[in-house]
Lab assay of single mutants.
Amino acid sequence: VLKALERTRQLDIPDEKTMPVLMKLLEEAGGNWSYIKLDNYTALVDAIYSVED
């Protein structure tokens, strides 16, 4: 979780936006981090930006 938060902080995305999206992605992935961690957490960042749209 810390590495995911560090990555999104680099992009000026607050933890308050990151955590709900991260928890949803983890739930959808059955707790499997490998998809979320791919390409420096690209799936997480993309999911956060899609929620903002």
Score class of each variant (00 low, 15 high):
Val1Ala: 06
Val1Asn: 05
Val1His: 07
Leu2Asn: 13
Leu2Glu: 15
Lys3Met: 09
Lys3Gln: 15
Lys3Trp: 02
Ala4His: 04
Ala4Tyr: 05
Ala4Ile: 04
Ala4Asn: 04
Leu5Val: 03
Leu5Asp: 03
Leu5Ile: 05
Arg7Lys: 07
Arg7Asp: 04
Thr8Ser: 04
Thr8Met: 13
Thr8Lys: 01
Thr8Arg: 01
Thr8Leu: 09
Arg9Met: 04
Arg9Asn: 04
Gln10Asn: 08
Gln10Met: 13
Gln10Ile: 09
Gln10Asp: 08
Gln10Arg: 08
Leu11Asp: 03
Asp12Ala: 13
Asp12Arg: 14
Asp12Thr: 07
Pro14Leu: 06
Pro14His: 05
Pro14Ala: 08
Asp15Pro: 04
Asp15His: 03
Asp15Asn: 03
Asp15Ile: 04
Asp15Gln: 02
Glu16His: 13
Glu16Lys: 08
Glu16Ser: 12
Lys17Leu: 12
Lys17His: 08
Lys17Thr: 12
Thr18His: 02
Thr18Ser: 12
Thr18Cys: 06
Met19His: 05
Met19Cys: 13
Met19Gly: 03
Pro20Asn: 08
Val21Asn: 02
Val21Phe: 05
Leu22Arg: 00
Met23Pro: 00
Lys24Arg: 14
Lys24Gly: 07
Lys24Phe: 07
Leu25Glu: 03
Leu25Cys: 04
Leu25Gln: 01
Leu25Ala: 03
Leu26Glu: 00
Leu26Asn: 00
Leu26His: 00
Glu27Ser: 11
Glu27Leu: 11
Glu27Tyr: 10
Glu27Lys: 10
Glu27Asp: 11
Glu28Gly: 08
Glu28Arg: 10
Glu28Phe: 08
Ala29Pro: 02
Ala29Asn: 15
Gly30His: 11
Gly31Tyr: 12
Gly31Arg: 03
Gly31Cys: 10
Asn32Met: 06
Asn32Arg: 07
Trp33Met: 05
Trp33Gly: 02
Ser34Pro: 06
Tyr35Asp: 11
Ile36Phe: 01
Ile36Thr: 01
Lys37Met: 15
Lys37Asn: 11
Lys37Phe: 11
Lys37Cys: 15
Lys37Ala: 15
Leu38Trp: 11
Leu38Phe: 12
Asp39Ser: 08
Asp39Asn: 14
Asn40Ala: 07
Tyr41Cys: 03
Tyr41Thr: 01
Tyr41Glu: 00
Thr42Lys: 15
Thr42Cys: 08
Thr42Leu: 14
Thr42Val: 11
Ala43Arg: 11
Ala43Phe: 10
Ala43Cys: 07
Ala43Lys: 11
Leu44Val: 05
Leu44Pro: 00
Leu44Glu: 03
Leu44Asn: 00
Val45Trp: 05
Val45Glu: 01
Val45Asn: 00
Asp46Val: 11
Asp46Ser: 12
Asp46Arg: 12
Asp46Phe: 09
Ala47Ile: 04
Ala47Asp: 02
Ala47Tyr: 06
Ala47Lys: 08
Ile48Arg: 01
Ile48Trp: 03
Ile48Glu: 00
Tyr49Pro: 04
Tyr49Ser: 09
Tyr49Ile: 11
Tyr49Cys: 11
Ser50Met: 14
Ser50Cys: 09
Ser50Asn: 11
Ser50His: 12
Ser50Gln: 13
Ser50Ala: 15
Val51Arg: 10
Val51Thr: 14
Val51Lys: 13
Glu52His: 12
Asp53Tyr: 13
